[in-house]
Design a binder for these strands. Structure first.
Length: 268
DNA sequence: ACACTGACCTGCGAGC
DNA sequence: TGCTCGCAGGTCAGTG
């Protein structure tokens, strides 16, 4: 569920909570969460401090003293800051003991999330083949036109393609299509110049609003609250029954293996 | 080269 | 009540 705005919220919350803290110990209870050797992971992180906090697409980038700690929450990954006395449940897979006595706990019911350690100088521009961030100048109408050359896939699938643009998931993809008045199943080859321009502005507008909404929750974080974002923005179409603009019934269609919600009256 | 499908996981809710 | 089944979704490997 975490998409770009939620990951951004998690990054900023962690920055606020644990910047400068040292990792005293690491317990890896579920090795499959790691993309590297668990012993190596533990040994490398012990003694390192959390220095700077960034995001690229849906990846959390935690820069330590001499290593880049990478975390992807996938569907249900969450971080908790808790006291060691608080009980662990069976979904808490990686525990970081901090030098202030607290523990940073990674919880993930479906074990889809992944962690890795990479060199500090890892090139994040081309990292994992990720496309531009929605807020980069390089994500513009001309870029979309070039990317779509020779492609016929649905606009919805395009938005979910992390090589096209980084950070958008199923919920925001539906919302962006609605905001643009484009049916999610329409071929990207049939977008007009105006559609491409709208896609850029509406993507940025919706993500900006969602980040702002997520950001407002940061103030209320307590030490044990899950550092995560549920969807902060009120959805216009995703999982809705009735269109909030025209009152028509919202339809659900299977596009690229994803449930896709749209208003047949407002979107063409 | 592009497009589509299944696997990875687990919890939950619908239906019988 | 208790079981099975399908669905949720991000990413990537595999296939057409």
């Amino acid at each position: 569920m975490p998409e770009l705005p939620e990951v951004e919220t998690v990054v900023r919350t962690l920055e606020h909570q644990i910047q400068g803290r040292e990792i005293e110990d690491v317990a890896v209870r579920t090795p499959m969460i790691l993309e590297c050797d668990p012993d190596q992971f533990r040994k490398t992180l012990i003694g390192q401090h959390f220095r700077t906090f960034e995001r690229r697409g849906k990846y959390l980038l935690l820069y330590m003293d001499s290593v880049l700690f990478l975390s992807h929450l996938r569907m249900e990954g969450k971080y908790y800051l808790q006291a060691p006395e608080e009980p662990l449940d069976r979904h808490m897979h990686v525990i970081f003991q901090l030098d202030d006595g607290r523990q940073l706990r990674y919880r993930d019911t479906r074990k889809f999330g992944r962690m890795n350690l990479l060199p500090m100088d890892t090139d994040l521009l081309t990292f994992h083949g990720l496309g531009p961030e929605p807020f980069w100048d390089s994500f513009n109408a001309d870029y979309i036109r070039e990317y779509c050359k020779g492609r016929k896939e649905p606009v919805k699938s395009l938005l979910l393609d992390q090589h096209f643009v980084a950070g958008i998931g199923n919920i925001y993809a539906d919302e962006i299509c609605f905001a643009c008045g484009i049916r999610p199943g329409r071929s990207c080859a049939r977008m007009t110049k105006k559609d491409r321009e709208n896609l850029v502005t509406e993507t940025r507008r919706i993500l900006t609003r969602a980040i702002a909404a997520g950001g407002t929750t940061i103030r209320s974080y307590t030490s044990s609250l899950g550092v995560t974002g549920r969807f902060q923005l009120e959805c216009m179409v995703h999982e809705q029954k009735v269109c909030k603009v025209c009152g028509n019934e919202i339809r659900m269609k299977w596009i690229g293996g994803r449930s896709s919600y749209y208003c047949p009256h407002c979107q063409h």
